[in-house]
Design a protein around this nucleic acid. Structure first.
Length: 666
RNA sequence: GCCGCUGUAGCUCAGUUGGCAGAGCGCGUCCUUGGUAAGGACGAGGUCAUGGGUUCAAGUCCCAUCAGCGGCUCCA
């Protein structure tokens, strides 16, 4: 006998085999019609999923109002898309078709090269399929039978997946809809009638099982919603987010430029972008001073031998600019990392434990030859500046230093209103042998990382296999306007460089014997390029007053007040504000609009009335006209906002189809 | 690096079956002198990414290269 516990607390008892659909039907015809799937003991299943015959279960029926239901429907829509593609093209091999954040995709192997010109035909075929309202039927088969089905279907990727990824499964499920039959864990909606509005978004290449050495498949990205309005709203949000793209705003607001003649992935900081970067650098420099760092400067180039010792060459040779070869086998590398130079500063003198921790900081520019398909705006570039520092300390000091680094990173991000990040703890993969350093050291370091995060109330997720080969790390990861994740700040422990095999670092301990220090690499912003790129999107180009390249614009009502306007502009500049004046023969409305569109935080409107009263009419970019104030009053207001580094507006929410929330593996 | 798409004025884009290179914004000059999101007139601005090919004729068709975009893979 089966006891079914429903969310309202009622209990139903069944003697014979039963499905969620039958339970729904018993509750009422309305629910039976509206239910798209069910949750049994926390697991989402289809309406025809056979419930156990014995015991006690909890059952929740999902309708389209339930937030969990949309993933089920999207996955069913993926099947419909695959079915449409198979109808339209010959020899389609199916791979994986999971849901992702904001939609779903399906990977195909077929001869015809899909392009967005094919989308209307595919969508039309999908509409025909949906209109038929055919059911999705679940088939549960023993392993051998399942293999035979896939062989009969001629679906080689499905066969391979059963033999490899699913080698330990004794039974496998399929879903059938009309002529379409696919190996699939499910769940699905009962019939296609539950599929609402959908749209194909893009086509892309994707390697089978994510492996570059395997065949490249064609991936169709799409999304679906229960109703058309929701779909349109979603597409509108994607459009909005795309307007926040730092590549779009960077051009619009004259922040940075990239020129093919200079080189792909090499950023030209225009005056306005450079102002923002400079202010961030000053901000970080102030923090470094407070936290006991010492500034150093080192060259952007070094002998290849330096990087042979560090292990960066030739290990990463394929992502480095090739060495510069001089006479007599003198070879130099554009530096891909700052650490070897800082190590040499450590080694420039014998060190005592009394000097530790030694914290050496530099805004160090590094060069990496990223693969051609990888470069992207400011977020993935070939030359970038890290707000880098290396801490040399004793093993006992590691936890405190780690804490200091994480605190500083948190403080810096918080100061900018950047709270929408996750912290990823990169730990070693116990199954791999690529790591240097003893397992005990790793264990201890990883443990102390977890403890430090807990004590700082940082919600950090350990991810095995994400460590660098030389030590564990904590990465601050943010999502951009498109939905892609980027690593910003990072704190990394290094057992490699100080070791005897590398630079053989030492300090004299209290026992008068030599000891090996531990190194920590850390960069709270990560790369200035990437960080500013992310900041542009975070603020949608509307930087807080303290970072705004132009903080105030003086607007004259007519040319009669130009002299007074220039006087105000001069006084603002003397007061240390970044100011420009607009004295053109345009109407005040036009000048306001331009400043508004240019995202200038404050406008000082001055006309004859102001001249007479020795005032300025302050207009706030966000709140609008604040009315006339005395010059001193207005400046005091702005200075306060700058001193507080007030963040008044941020923007977030991604447009794209990130991997988060991915499920339904096949 | 791989798959697909794209490249026309400073920017955003249009350009038909191959037949004289276009618009809006911006920019310049002049008129207008105005109080919180676009005043008007005139004008300048192009090796249609680059190199080859097909053709009487190429922005348009084909090939290569470079660059950008969407993904995949990689990321010290």
């Amino acid at each position: 006998m089966l006891e079914v516990h429903l969310p309202d607390g009622s209990v139903k008892k069944y003697e014979s085999p039963i499905t969620p659909a039958a339970v729904a039907a018993e509750i009422g015809p309305g629910l039976a019609k509206a239910a798209v799937s069910a949750v049994v003991d926390g697991k989402t299943v289809s309406m025809d999923y056979p419930l156990p015959e014995e015991g006690s279960i909890s059952l929740r029926l999902l309708t389209k109002k339930d937030p969990d239901a949309i993933h089920v429907m999207r996955h069913s829509c993926a099947h419909v898309m695959a079915r449409a593609v198979m109808r339209l093209y010959e020899g389609v091999q199916l791979a994986f078709g999971p849901t992702v954040e904001g939609g779903f995709y399906y990977d195909f192997d077929l001869d015809h090269a899909l392009s967005d010109e094919d989308f209307p035909a595919i969508e039309a075929e999908m509409k025909r399929i949906v209109k038929e309202e055919e059911p999705f039927e679940r088939l549960d088969e023993p392993r051998e039978k399942a293999l035979q089905i896939c062989r009969d279907l001629g679906q080689k990727y499905k066969i391979e997946h059963i033999e490899e990824g699913l080698h330990d499964q004794s039974r496998l499920s399929f879903y059938r809809q009309g002529e379409f039959l696919d190996l699939c864990r499910g769940p699905h909606v009962p019939t296609a009638s539950h599929i609402g509005a959908f749209k194909l978004l893009s086509v892309a290449g994707a390697y089978w099982k994510g492996d570059q050495s395997r065949k490249q498949l064609q991936r169709l990205y799409a999304t679906a919603f229960f109703d058309k309005k929701e779909l349109e709203e979603h597409l509108r949000r994607i459009d909005e987010a795309k307007k926040r793209d730092h590549r779009v705003l960077g051009k619009q607001l004259d922040l940075f430029a990239i020129n093919p003649l200079v080189g792909s992935g090499l950023i030209l900081w225009l005056p306005k972008g450079a102002t923002i970067r400079g202010l961030l650098e000053d901000f970080v420099k102030g923090e470094l001073e407070r936290r006991g760092y010492e500034r150093v400067y080192t060259p952007n180039i070094g002998r290849v031998e330096l990087y042979e010792i560090s292990g960066h060459y030739p290990y990463y040779a394929d992502s480095q600019f090739a060495p510069i070869v001089m006479e007599q086998e003198e070879r130099y590398l554009l530096r891909p990392m700052n650490c070897p130079h800082h190590v040499m500063i450590y080694k420039s003198a014998p060190r005592s434990y009394r000097e530790l921790p030694l914290r050496l900081a530099e805004f160090g520019t590094v060069y990496r030859y990223e693969k051609s398909g990888e470069v992207s705006g400011m977020t993935r570039v070939r030359g970038f500046t890290q707000d880098d520092a290396h801490i040399f300390c004793t093993v006992d000091q590691v936890a405190d230093e780690f804490r200091g680094c994480l605190e500083m990173t948190q403080f810096v991000l918080k100061s900018l209103g950047l709270t929408n990040y996750r912290v990823r703890l990169g730990f070693r993969d116990p199954k791999s042998d690529k790591y240097v350093g003893s397992p005990e050291n790793w264990e201890r370091a990883q443990q102390s990382l977890v403890e430090v995060c807990q004590s700082l109330r940082i919600d950090a997720q350990p991810e095995p296999g994400e460590a660098a080969f030389y030590g564990p790390k904590a990465d601050f990861v943010v999502t951009d306007a498109i939905g892609r994740e980027w690593q910003l700040g990072t704190v990394q422990l290094d057992y490699n460089l100080p070791s005897q095999e590398r630079f053989g670092l030492e300090y004299t301990g209290a026992d008068n014997h030599p000891h090996q220090p531990v190194m920590i690499h850390r960069a709270p912003l990560g790369s200035l390029e990437r960080f500013v790129g992310v900041l542009i999107e975070h603020f949608a180009g509307a930087f807080p007053l303290w970072l705004a390249p132009e903080q105030v614009r003086v607007l004259t009502v007519s040319e009669k007040s130009e002299e007074y306007g220039r006087q105000i502009e001069g006084r603002l500049r003397d007061a240390g504000l970044r100011v420009k004046g607009d004295y053109r023969g345009e109407k005040i409305n036009a000048k306001i609009r331009e400043a508004q569109v240019g995202l200038i935080p404050y406008m000082f409107v001055v006309g004859e009335k102001d001249m007479a009263g020795q005032t300025v009419a302050v207009r706030d970019r966000i709140d609008g006209d604040l009315g006339p104030m005395s010059f001193d009053q207005a400046v005091a207001k702005l200075r306060q906002e700058i001193a507080d580094r007030t963040v008044r507006q941020t923007f977030q929410g991604a447009a794209g189809l990130g991997e988060r929330g991915s499920n339904h593996e096949y």
